[in-house]
């Protein structure tokens, strides 16, 4: 939010929406929408989707840290649209960063 208020809530609904936003921080985005427990998002590289947790256990309704599933998905093209494809175009992708949680910044692929 900018310091100077360029947009102001007028009616009660608008104020309620702003109040909702107050609790949000910029590092976390709510992915959940629709049926309880199922996120709406999961399309970026690190949200491969498989980790969606539909069970009433931790992390409820959220994704597991999908970095842990990255290479498993990448090598075998398990999620070809979202991870580099290890069978054809990126057979040596794992060499760039064999430890995703530690070295993900080194990863380069198209």
């Amino acid at each position: 939010m900018s310091n100077k208020k360029t947009i102001q809530a007028l009616n009660e609904k608008a104020k309620a929406i702003e109040a909702l936003a107050d609790g949000e921080t910029e590092t976390v985005r709510a992915l959940q929408d629709g049926p309880p427990g199922m996120p709406a998002g999961c399309t970026t590289v690190f949200d491969t989707g498989w980790e969606t947790n539909p069970r009433p256990t931790y992390p409820v309704g959220n994704c597991q840290a999908s970095a842990r599933d990255f290479h498993g998905c990448a090598g075998d093209c398990w999620w070809p649209a979202q991870t580099p494809d290890g069978l054809t175009n990126h057979p040596d992708m794992d060499q760039q960063c064999p430890n995703v949680a530690r070295d993900w910044r080194k990863m380069k692929y198209d």
């Binding site: 208020k5 360029t6 947009i7 102001q8 809530a9 007028l10 009616n11 609904k13 608008a14 929406i17």
Partner: peptide, 21 residues
């Protein structure tokens, strides 16, 4: 301007800068 959020029935006023943006 006043902007009306159609889905939420929310109303916000914009100053000139926000209107330009």
């Amino acid at each position: 301007a006043v902007v009306y959020g159609v889905e939420d029935v929310s109303l916000f006023s914009l100053d000139r800068e926000a209107r330009d943006v």
